[in-house]
Design a protein around this nucleic acid. Structure first.
Lengths: 212, 212
DNA sequence: GTCTATATCCTGATAGAC
DNA sequence: GTCTATCAGGATATAGAC
């Protein structure tokens, strides 16, 4: 019925949704899940609570939307690197690690990891979605780079779980630490991201170095 | 006044405090800070809310008590290892890493890191105390082992921040992941702590191996 | 699709008896 | 030191007009 009018309405509705998600993500990152009330969200979105409930069925639904929204963007950089045939295995690994630092520390979905831990017991399906739709694809992309290098003989084979442990562990902890100590005035000198990333990459390449 | 009666009263008061702290720590770990109400705490302690407020000035005070309570215990294992003159530098490092896994993953204060991140913006002094009283002593203990080994020529010198990044990163992330995915039924096969610890220790010793 | 107004419940915290 | 009783406020969520 009146399909000609449906498109612009749908578009404006989708725009509102996206605007709400964007604003709310910032609030969640700043104050945590439980620390952010629907009233606060409504005010920040220049709306009333009732309008929020028109777009989202509840606070949990809104949170899931915020988390899920960033998946594709954050994963995109990684998939592009894996598919780039002009790079050597080592170049791919270096680029992938750089991308992981970038997304984990600066992208909303990466910075939201502690929040997901916060709500994971109340909403197990949030943790599950985070795992299957975000963590696993990251691991698979990184592992594909490693396996390609091994197949070409430029990387030594490594245990998958142990490699992931050393590859992702420092990055996630760095992100968590920076969130936890966000009030420190000398955050960047205390956590010098670029220097840590370079040293970390060397360690990973050391694990993969053939010989001995 | 009536000093002879004061001791048992003080003792029972201290016992109550400790019992409350112990019970509440479990609740915070299970449901997060904001997810745990004073009513819930009171019920779990077989008390009324009013009695809780006799022992603690408020929810924040109680939380700080829970976090602070575990510092000494968790740090103790590490200081014992550092002081043990019968061990070689490599043995000390192995023992220290094992102790770090143990305390970070199983001790309340270690498992509470995500909670501290949750409340750090609302209560910056909690994050500050965590840093100066728990994180820094851990780093200092580990660094003393490294420096001793370097002085004796069995370890190669390394950059402090980069070493900490690789040493603590995987452990903290492992703890966070296990909290986040606590609902998984195959938690120990997905995060095989002992195997990851062994591989991690090898990586750290590789960073410290003298000669190129 | 956004509003005003309201329902219902739970929160942290306190007063005062015992 | 623990209780009963209660407060004032804020939480999520909904009803219904426009």
């Amino acid at each position: 019925m009146e399909t000609s009018m449906l498109d612009p309405e749908e578009k404006s509705k989708a725009d509102s949704r996206e605007r709400i998600i964007h604003t709310t993500t910032g609030l969640f990152l700043e104050k945590g899940f439980a620390g952010t009330s629907m009233s606060t969200i409504a005010k920040a979105c220049d709306m009333t609570k009732a309008s929020l409930y028109y777009h989202f069925s509840g606070k949990e639904d809104l949170f899931i939307a915020c988390v899920t929204h960033g998946y594709a963007t954050a994963l995109n950089a990684l998939t592009v690197i894996v598919a780039d045939t002009s790079l050597t295995a080592e170049q791919k690994l270096r680029a992938a690690i750089t991308a992981l630092y970038e997304t984990t520390i600066t992208s909303p979905v990466g910075r939201m990891s502690p929040l997901i831990a916060e709500v994971s017991r109340a909403f197990p399906k949030v943790a599950l979605s985070f795992h299957t739709e975000y963590i696993e694809p990251q691991r698979e992309a990184l592992w594909q780079i490693v396996e390609d290098g091994v197949a070409k003989g430029v990387f030594a084979p490594v245990d998958q779980n142990q490699f992931f442990h050393i590859a992702f562990g420092p990055i996630v902890t760095l992100s968590l630490s920076r969130e936890m100590f966000a009030t420190f005035d000398d955050l960047d000198t205390y956590f010098p991201v670029d220097a840590l990333r370079v040293g970390h990459t060397d360690v990973l390449l050391g694990m993969l170095r053939p010989g001995t």
